[in-house]
Simulated assay, not measured.
Amino acid sequence: MDKLIDAHIHLDKYSDEEIKEIFKDSSFQLSVITVSYDLESSKRNLALSNEYPNIKPAYGFHPEQDLPNDQELSELFSWMEAHKDQMTAVGEVGLPYYLRRKQADSAFQIEGYIVLLEEFIKLAKRWEKPIALHAVYNDAPIVCNLLEKHSVQKAHFHWFKGDHATVRRLISNGYFISFTPDIVYEKEIQDLVRYYPLDKMMAETDGPWPFKGPFKGQPTHPAMMNHAIKNLADIKKKPLESVYRLLYQNTRSFYNI
Score class of each variant (00 low, 15 high):
K236Y: 04
V115W: 00
P63F: 01
D199I: 00
I22Y: 00
M1R: 09
M224E: 06
L170R: 03
I257A: 06
Q153S: 12
I257G: 02
I121G: 01
H227K: 14
K212V: 13
I131Y: 12
Y37S: 04
H134I: 00
I142Y: 05
F120Y: 04
A58L: 06
Q29K: 11
Y97K: 08
L146E: 03
H8F: 11
H83G: 07
R252N: 12
S253N: 05
M202C: 09
I229F: 08
Y195M: 09
D6I: 13
G217N: 15
G217Q: 14
D12S: 13
V90A: 05
E81C: 07
N69E: 04
D234T: 06
L46W: 07
S172W: 05
K236D: 07
L247K: 07
K187I: 08
V35L: 05
D2M: 12
T180N: 06
D16S: 10
A233S: 15
P208M: 14
F211M: 10
Y98F: 12
K43D: 15
E148P: 02
A47P: 02
E18Y: 00
M225L: 15
E72G: 10
Q249C: 00
L67H: 06
P208Q: 10
I110K: 13
P208Y: 14
A58N: 01
R101W: 05
H8I: 05
P53I: 07
D2Q: 13
E40T: 09
M202K: 00
G60C: 01
S42G: 11
A223T: 07
G162A: 11
N231L: 11
F254V: 02
E75I: 02
D234M: 08
E21F: 06
R101P: 08
F61W: 15
H227I: 15
K20Q: 15
D139A: 01
Y185C: 08
R101V: 03
W79A: 05
H134Y: 12
T88V: 10
E81I: 02
L48I: 06
V35D: 06
I19A: 14
F120V: 10
E18S: 05
A155I: 00
L147I: 10
H221Q: 14
R100C: 08
E128F: 03
L246P: 07
A140M: 03
A89V: 00
P219V: 04
K230D: 14
S242G: 05
T166G: 10
P130N: 05
G91I: 06
Y196I: 03
P63A: 04
K230W: 01
L76Q: 10
D182A: 14
N256K: 04
M87F: 01
Y98E: 07
E40K: 13
A135D: 14
Y248K: 03
V32H: 02
K3Q: 12
A165R: 08
A165Y: 12
S49L: 08
Q153F: 04
S253W: 00
I33A: 01
G213D: 03
K56R: 08
A7E: 06
A228S: 15
V32F: 05
Y97I: 02
A132V: 14
F28E: 02
Q190P: 09
I171C: 07
Q71V: 13
I33N: 00
M87L: 10
